[in-house]
Design a binder for these strands. Structure first.
Length: 679
RNA sequence: GCCGGUGUGGCGCAGUUGGUAGCGCAGACGACUUGUAAUCGUCAGGUCGUGGGUUCGAUUCCCACCGCCGGCUCCA
């Protein structure tokens, strides 16, 4: 082509290229390293293939494999290769969609004859994928009119459904080619080799040879379009990276997460278990886990008292009428345990929620505006019939205890009350060592909500402005609210960067009306109060699990079930060890003496495995000098000859500060962080 | 609820043409009396998740159910 084009680069410079130059040629012109790393390009904000011609005057950046965008391209292209491999191995298979997800990708299939993938198939598919990669097939883009697309995928019902959706104007993220406004809809495809073409928006790497640092992870069933009523497809999950090292690092991170798994730690540290005899999703807490729970709950109670909450209690079962009034039976009957019939036909339900009980406490007598805001708190145990496939450790259970509170206030008080609540919540989470947050605002669930549009709008706006006042990042979650009101949820980031939905604060105009709640105002008229639902831990069980994983089992000293263990070197030091323990427990420190007939080394090892914050070894020198040998958790260097009184003072200080031996400590600098220094 | 995987002493694991189970750790007991990540020995402990079926005989093959793991759907 004749002439030249000029493009602007991300650093602001411009570069002239021959007319018709592609993004790949631009990358080559800039440098061989960039050309090698390039997987796609971004032209005026739109991602395109490297083979795309660059329009004159456009702004272009080259997308490299080691960027988030680049990895997405690799993953998407690897997903195509997966589909190609499956079609090679199962002629006649139908392929549906294969999007990029966090750290990887998946692809959904329907196999001929309703066949299912099993784990052995993964290895075969992976081998075929490596063949395709070795063949270094090109990804060649084509654009088609709708009818042409339908013909092309005549025997692929899922692809046809997607194309029909594009025609109908539904934005199909994965297949619609970027078309200008008013342009007739088109779809784009990528052709790899005779026999394999996939519907796709792109961009893709230039050829399959650019891929290879991937692994297929697992198979799963998944409903077409995420709809439980539609057919279930066979999904394969995979991960792909820019290099073998990045892939290995990712697999290593998965192992790290597995190491922290609360279910594993719960068993190892003797905290809780799930006896099969009791039933799925119904945990029991052992003495050590019970101690941790008690500490969490006691601290929470103390803070709630200080923040003006009152404590209430309610029973575990109730007549059906209560949940008919609240509306829960309309929406969540499936999630409730079936009713039991008592007293000649009266139906009783196990309670799935605490709020109606608190409402009845409110209604037990007439309320004056002078009493508001009224804050009722309860560690309320609720039972929910979770579907069998969803129970998961302590995070998804069928019986749990919520740190549940309901605040009743006037409309005028609402904004301040919300703000105070949110501040309180963030402060308390911080005391448990969680201090990286963002907020999420969940709005009205369409088709599954009660109440007027106006109430919803007011409630949502009030929450939005409260969130804005906190100055934290706010993410919208459209349609994610409860049926009776919108909510703010606090999303917490843990030590390995995962986010967990933690506290929720819901604004509710509906339940007070349903229950005909009222208060007498200053005007001597009756008004309906506003209700705020909030749980801070969510459930004690789930919060326990998140903390355990956050700390990888190394709970801060104040929460550790056993804070100090004393090991006498020999029988001669038994009495001194006991006196050390007595002194410590006199200060409220949880301490045990281990004088088993094992070597000091064996007892040290055993103690270390329980993740006790401090192990004290006491021998002859210590008896004479009234000292202890301190083994701090996270360090493998013992600190000898620590004066006993100084150790006690330092531990008490650390408990008070909610510190950990890894970060603060009774003497000297901190040792290495947990998880290091041990083979 | 759906798809795939899985279930062997408290925990971690072995166990193939189907012939009634082994190891390590933990536990009990004994010896050793120990100064920083496993001292030695002895012993005990399992109706192989549960229930059916096939078979002379089932941990092993088949069916159903339960639990668990990974997803999907759901999550007041």
């Amino acid at each position: 082509m004749a002439g030249e084009v000029s493009v602007r680069l991300p650093d602001g410079s411009t570069r002239a290229l021959p007319g018709g130059a592609t993004a790949a040629e631009l990358a080559r012109a800039i440098g061989p390293r960039l050309a090698k790393a390039a997987v796609a390009a971004e032209v005026d904000g739109v991602e395109v293939d490297l083979a795309a011609e660059l329009p004159d005057g456009s702004t272009v950046s080259v997308v490299t494999a080691n960027s988030e965008e680049g990895r997405a391209v690799l993953r998407h292209s690897t997903a195509h290769v997966l589909a190609q491999a499956v079609l090679r191995l199962w002629p006649g298979a139908h392929y549906a969609i294969g999007p990029v997800i966090e750290d990887g990708f998946y692809y959904d299939f329907e196999l001929p004859g309703g066949a299912h993938f099993n784990d052995d198939d993964l290895a075969r598919i992976e081998a075929t994928m490596r063949d395709i990669i070795a063949e270094d097939q090109p990804f060649i883009r084509h654009e088609h009119a709708i009818e042409e697309g339908l013909d092309l995928f005549a025997d692929q019902p899922f692809k046809r459904e997607i194309i029909e959706a594009v025609r109908a104007g539904a934005a199909e993220v994965d297949a619609a080619a970027p078309a200008g406004p008013g342009a007739p809809p088109v779809v784009s495809t990528y052709w790899n080799s005779p026999g394999f073409t996939d519907l796709c928006r792109g961009p893709h790497v230039p050829s399959t040879g650019r891929l290879g640092h991937f692994a297929l992870m697992r198979v799963a069933g998944a409903y077409w379009r995420g709809d439980e009523k539609r057919q279930q497809l066979q999904r394969i999950y995979g991960t792909a990276w820019e290099s073998d090292k990045a892939l290995a690092d990712h697999l290593h991170r998965l192992e790290e997460a597995e190491r922290r798994d609360h279910r594993k730690l719960g068993a190892e540290l003797d905290l809780f278990s799930f006896p099969e005899e009791i039933g799925s999703g119904l945990p029991v807490f052992h003495p050590k886990g019970g101690t941790v729970r008690r500490i969490m709950e006691e601290y929470s109670r103390q803070r709630h008292v200080a923040a003006g909450y009152e404590f209430v209690n309610s029973p575990h079962i109730t007549k059906a009428e209560l949940f008919e009034t609240s509306g829960h039976l309309d929406w969540f009957a499936e999630g409730m345990y079936p009713p039991m019939e008592l007293d000649g036909g009266q139906q009783y339900y196990l309670k799935p929620m605490n709020c109606p009980f608190h409402i009845l406490i409110y209604k037990s007598r007439q309320r004056s505006y002078r009493e508001l805001p009224l804050r009722m708190f309860e560690f309320g145990t609720v039972y929910r019939y979770e579907k069998s496939g969803v129970v998961h450790g302590l995070t998804r259970v069928r019986g749990m205890t919520q740190d549940d509170a309901h605040l009743f206030c006037t409309r005028e008080q609402m904004a301040d009350e919300l703000h105070a609540t949110l501040t309180f919540v963030l402060d308390l989470l911080g005391d448990f060592g969680l201090d990286e947050f963002y907020l999420e605002l969940s709005t009205r669930p369409e088709g599954k909500a009660v109440g007027s549009d106006e109430d919803w709008a007011v409630a949502t706006e009030t929450l939005r402005s409260t969130a804005a006042r906190m100055g934290l990042e706010l993410v919208m979650d459209e349609g994610g609210g409860a049926f009776y009101g919108p909510k703010i949820s606090v999303q917490v980031k843990d030590a390995i960067g995962r986010t967990h939905q933690m506290s929720t604060i819901q604004l509710d105009f509906q339940e007070p009306q349903r229950f005909a709640m009222e208060y007498v105002g200053a005007d001597n008229a009756r008004h309906v109060p506003i209700m705020i639902h909030r749980a801070l831990f969510g459930s004690v069980e789930r919060f326990f699990a998140i903390l355990l994983e956050h700390y990888a089992g190394n709970l801060p000293t104040w929460m550790s079930p056993e804070q100090v263990r004393v090991l006498p070197v020999s029988e001669d030091h038994q009495a001194y060890a006991e006196s050390v323990a007595t002194l410590l427990s006199g200060h409220g420190i949880r301490v045990a003496v281990d004088s088993a007939d094992d070597s000091v080394g064996a007892r040290i090892r055993r103690s270390k495995l329980t993740k006790v914050p401090y192990i004290l070894v006491v021998g002859d020198d210590d008896v004479t000098a009234r000292t202890v040998g301190v083994n701090r958790r996270g360090s493998n260097r013992p600190e000898r000859d620590e004066p006993l009184d100084r150790f006690v003072a330092a531990v008490l200080e650390e408990v008070e500060a909610h510190g950990s031996p890894e970060s603060t400590g009774p003497s000297g600098p901190a040792g290495p962080p947990p998880g290091t220094g041990r083979a």
